[in-house]
Design a protein around this nucleic acid. Sequence first.
DNA 1: CGACCCCTCGCTATTTTTGGGGAGGGGAAA
DNA 2: TTTCCCCTCCCCAAAAATAGCGAGGGGTCG
Lengths: 239, 239
Amino acid sequence: MGKIERRETLLGELEQAQGLEALQAAIVGLRDHFRVDHMVYHWVSSNGEQFGCGTYSDAWVQRYVDRDYLRVDPVIIGCYQRFHPVDWKRLDWSSKAARAFQAEAIAHGVGNQGFSVPIRGPVGQFALFTVSHDCSDEDWVRFTEENRRDLILFAHEFNVRALELEPGRSPEQSRALSPREIDAMTLVALGYSRAQVAETLAISEHTLRVYIESARSKLGALNTTHAVARALSRGLIVV
Amino acid sequence: MGKIERRETLLGELEQAQGLEALQAAIVGLRDHFRVDHMVYHWVSSNGEQFGCGTYSDAWVQRYVDRDYLRVDPVIIGCYQRFHPVDWKRLDWSSKAARAFQAEAIAHGVGNQGFSVPIRGPVGQFALFTVSHDCSDEDWVRFTEENRRDLILFAHEFNVRALELEPGRSPEQSRALSPREIDAMTLVALGYSRAQVAETLAISEHTLRVYIESARSKLGALNTTHAVARALSRGLIVV
DNA sequence: CGACCCCTCGCTATTTTTGGGGAGGGGAAA
DNA sequence: TTTCCCCTCCCCAAAAATAGCGAGGGGTCG
């Protein structure tokens, strides 16, 4: 069976995958398909909960969690700010903590090469699809050039499956804001004071306050800042 | 030339594409490849600026912008809250405004069927890769099932190109928040008052204030609400 | 070593926001 | 037609956030 056919088969299997175990099985299949040391899908849900599957050793995963390496790992830090899939070599390993982390990772069997695809969800979800391997720089460049597109595709497919696992996320859960409320909240989110917002919208400050309070009660928020946060998280306003 | 080869050729061309004109040319090529009526790539940058390329008529684009249909279009509203690529039929067209919008869109040559792939960037960018066509429901289901993966792949490729067009976006432009600042801003975003946050973090309210002000200045924000909005938009905190 | 950032604490005064009332006209949906 | 929501305006008192000054110990990086 050729490479393309095998890829199609794996994609088909992934589309059928239900639940975390199936994803775990799928990622092992992918690792063998790409002939790399490790493949990991890791995901931070909108409520901060973490979740993942992959082929790293349990010891490494445990250590990673215990020591809160999320805040140290240049792969995470870099990908949080990036949009493109990225080769680990292009990340910032200059800090002392990062280098110590890297050494420890390699000691735990993580390859010296890596490639990660970041993907974001609507309410702050952040997922990382990573492939890691131990080889020379040249071999790695060749590998990533050959497989970049496939990796992106698999990353996306994993995300779709993973999102299904996220509990109780109905898009219509919150009443929409009225146009005026959206205007008001947007300007407030942009840092304008109430007086400025009222002036900008050409309404009295009292009226403005009614909008803000109305939006707050619709969003179930405790105060204006909370309401802005919720409106942003739910995509009701954009700044 | 077979379909797969043609796809590979188009992907190759897209990877070479530089600038908006090249993207526009690429999207026309894609439309012909997929044999659909319209294909559009549309992107809201982190500073709110909009940008797009595609095959909709100028009249429709102009009208869309003039009437601020971004706030009405169920495709935009729905995809903002969603993660998956979505068929237009699954969106909420129940409101009067939405139906009026739909009728007008179809009158302007937009197909009755559509499929959109939402993709998000690290600092609030939001992109939508859309294909639209005029055909029966059955034909459309067949089309989307056949081409879903390819559409996702092209959406991603467009994003990579588009991000290159965004001016002066260095990943390190915004200093990261310190752990304590993240704690503070997160709790503030959750609606806690300063007193409550200080108590929760077991620090004095004065110290807390230092964190908030520090975060605010790092984020270039005008006030706390603004800082929370920016931190959320940039993915520095999650609520 | 010096510079820089992180964490922690303090004071006073002013400005702003919030919470509680109430009121009327217009439009859309049931 | 009635009901509900949207838009607009007003007052007052209490609570909260902001602005300005200050201090010290700890770590990392060049």
